[in-house]
Design a protein around this nucleic acid. Sequence first.
DNA 1: CGTATAATAT
DNA 2: GATATTATAC
Length: 580
Amino acid sequence: MIPSTIDMVLWKDFPKGLRVLLLCEDPNSVAETKIKLEKMDYSVFSYSDIQDALEAILRKAESFHVALVEVTVDNSERTFEFLEMARDLPIIVISNDCCLSTTMQCIAHGAAEFLQKPLSEDKLRNIWQHVVHKAFNASESVTPKSLKPIKETVVSMLQLDTKDSEEKIKSQSKAEDAEKNHVDNDEYKTTTDRYPAPSTPKLKQVERMVNDENSQENKCLTDGMEDPKGFLEVRKFASSESKSVDDACTNSIGVLNTNRDALTSAKQREAACEEEVNSADSSRPDECSAVKASSPTSSNVNIECNLQSSFDDKKKNKSVFSSDSLTRGSKGNKKKMKQVDWTPELHKRFVQAVEQLGIDQAIPSKILELMKVEGLTRHNVASHLQKYRMNRRHILLKEDDRKWQTKGDPNSWGYIQRPLMAYPPLHPTYSVPPGHLYAPWVHPSYQPHGAQMWGHPGFHAWHPPLEMWHWKTYPGVQADAWGCPVIPQYGYSPNSHQRLPMNYNLDTISDRNRETKDANGFHLAEEVADEVVKEAMSKPWLPLPLGLKPPSTDAVLAELHRQGIRTVPPCARSARAPHR
DNA sequence: CGTATAATAT
DNA sequence: GATATTATAC
């Protein structure tokens, strides 16, 4: 299963021949930089037009290993778009502009680094580090093909550099073969950790990581895994993108990430590391691990957990060596926790699937099918659906209570308020009071990361428009509301990024969610209305929830009378019991 | 499939 | 120690 990395052909003089996409609108600048880069044996493909560069990337993304892009005050918007389009590549932005806001925005849009011009030789020479970083840290599924050889090369180099590593890796491979269904569970880590400490702990970590990566890659390849890009995008943004390449690569390629931020987030996701040792369920061997493999952070979880353990003995004892996990391993009959982390993205996919089906058609198997998330099981979906429904019910009941409380006083303020809307009217100027009717659900593990990531002192100086983050992370903002439909926001354009100024027919490529929103906007609205009506009909005793106009009292009485019903109990349970 | 409940995390 | 989340049993 594990490809023998030893057989890999080494990339001699590694950075040499690395293919660099260079994009500067100033022709002189392009030429100048190109020459510099070529002196360092990079292969440079230069463009002075964003669209040309974009087309090149989209035509053959794997032609490049890294992109060097100049941003200017004039082209920043388009450059940001470019960054988004080329997210899978490591991108270094260069600029004369040293404004923090610009820098931030570039990084936020996916740039790996922001280099101030003029470009020194040193700066240019080191751009390969970003390639390595990306090769290791991007999720398997979004890693451009061009970066895979990089990883292999680095792996090979590391192996050659360490005498006993090869053996260790073999051992690990065995361990993994034995446990190949559980890529990053406790036993796996425990097993590897049990081996005698090699020369340097850090190298050990790297090797382990490398192995993890390989195994995941293997799985992905053999599974022909689908890559729901929209789903992956955010996590990538939230985790690996934030890592500093300088920290990672300058000292030693091996120390991929030792900064505390990552460790902190590792703490938060420690749960993900803690897994069943002896996952008894062999009926769907690949699925459990595949979920993790399909998540871009999965490898990072491992990395971070490993790093974490080396930094934090207490945690290590708990998460890696705890008797608990060993016991579980021997027994192998306890519940596996957290095979699936319902990240906001995953949840969004879920919600979208549910809505696409309509609430009454939304059964686990169909949702699962629609979600197209590799490795997710029907059980996972069912479980989540259960929670989703309960939440939904809860919300509806609350609203109902409110209505009942005011039912006797049609003129009361509450009653007038009553036409409750699950979503704002399709009007640009309408905004939902946050948490008013339906509190948007934000995954607890998401925001802290973001906060940490941007929590450095300079951050608050530049206040990023909130909408921007929404756009980046939650294109269908409402999609994350529990039990609340995903609502297209017609006419709402938080900032100029939202609507692409460019004529490329590519916008849907980079932002699937926008596409979804636009393409399904009315469809979703219909679904919503449909669902609401069904809900109302199935629970006639409940108040009409969504601003549906109740029939006039006269009309109701007339109809009842027509059906022969003359007296109506105050709380008639069902209008569908028409018999006398 | 849907719900209840156990196991675990926070 | 209550609550939330997820897996699993029914």
